[in-house]
Simulated assay, not measured.
Amino acid sequence: MKGIFITGTDTGVGKTLITTLIAIGLSELGYSVTLRKPIETGCKPEGSILIPEDGMFYIKNIPSLKKEKIDDITPIRFKEPLCPLAASRIEKTQISWENIITSLKSVETSKILMVEGVGGVMVPITEGRFVYDLIIELQLPVIVVCGNRLGAINHTLLTLDFLKARKISVIGIIINHTDLADTLAHKTNPAIIAELSSGVPIIGTIPYISEISAESLKDVSKKYINYDIIQGYLQSDDITK
């Protein structure tokens, strides 16, 4: 299985947006791409159905996903905006780890599988299993998304150290502007992260996108993400090392 796991340094850093941008860019380069966000919390109830906002964002903005079913893209959904472990307990719905793995590994091997995690790498999914366990089991390399704000340096370096200690391969870092702020922290974060990231490259610094459309996403994807590094992993014989 070839693919990429998108994780964040925290919640609210823009993983869904970045995952969408990369999928668009890879599609433009000729790759057959499919996306999965196996668990989404904070879903909006419509009658008896929970609508996954992130999963629907994929379908709306990635042409190749128009024919895919939302139940395949985001099969596990919770109403409460909590970590999966807490949400499952409150809503009395058991999460099957085996079903998650089976569904992700059943994706056609001809496609590049992009998996978006939940929050950061230590977010608990079930008792004793965390987001990083999912990464290890899938054997996918990681792109780390950090929100460009005060605290980004600390959160990014901690995440990189954690992944390195578990021998999880990291393709690179994408720094995402989650708002229009232009503080000194926003200006200095990218250079400091690049200096201290122990050789893990910054493969994109994404500006705040005020108006999201098919054209704006395609333009930002092409202009601000380094696909040479990503393709290097996708074209290697064993991208997990």
Rank of each mutant, 00 (worst) to 15 (best):
E108T: 08
T183Q: 02
G12Q: 10
E195W: 07
V115I: 14
L160H: 11
L138S: 11
S213E: 10
I22D: 12
R129H: 13
A185L: 00
Y208S: 09
C83P: 12
K164V: 07
S64C: 04
I51L: 09
S88V: 04
G119L: 11
L65F: 00
S48F: 13
I90A: 05
P190C: 05
E80S: 10
I153A: 01
D182R: 14
I24T: 02
A152M: 01
E68V: 00
L158A: 05
V142Y: 02
Q231N: 14
N226Y: 08
A152I: 01
L35C: 01
Q235I: 12
T159F: 14
E127I: 13
P124G: 04
I239Q: 11
G8T: 15
G3Q: 07
V33Y: 00
I212S: 08
E195P: 04
R166A: 10
M1C: 07
I22H: 07
P207Y: 01
V145T: 03
I229G: 08
V13D: 12
L217F: 15
L35N: 00
I22Y: 05
E80G: 06
P84F: 01
L138V: 10
Y224M: 15
D182T: 13
D133Y: 04
I174R: 07
D72F: 03
L180Y: 06
S27R: 01
N99C: 06
E98V: 06
Q231L: 14
D237A: 14
Y31F: 11
L180T: 10
S236H: 14
K167Q: 15
D133H: 09
I212L: 15
I73E: 00
D237G: 15
I125D: 01
I153V: 10
T19W: 06
T109Y: 15
T41Q: 04
E116L: 03
W97P: 05
M56D: 07
P124F: 05
L35D: 00
P52C: 12
I59W: 03
S64H: 03
S96A: 05
L21F: 06
T20W: 13
G151S: 01
G12W: 09
A185P: 02
L157G: 02
S88I: 03
H155N: 03
M122K: 10
I153C: 02
A23D: 04
C83M: 03
E40K: 00
A214H: 11
T16V: 15
H186T: 14
I153K: 00
I73T: 00
A87L: 03
I209F: 07
I206T: 09
E127R: 12
A152G: 06
L160G: 04
G119D: 12
D72E: 11
G119W: 04
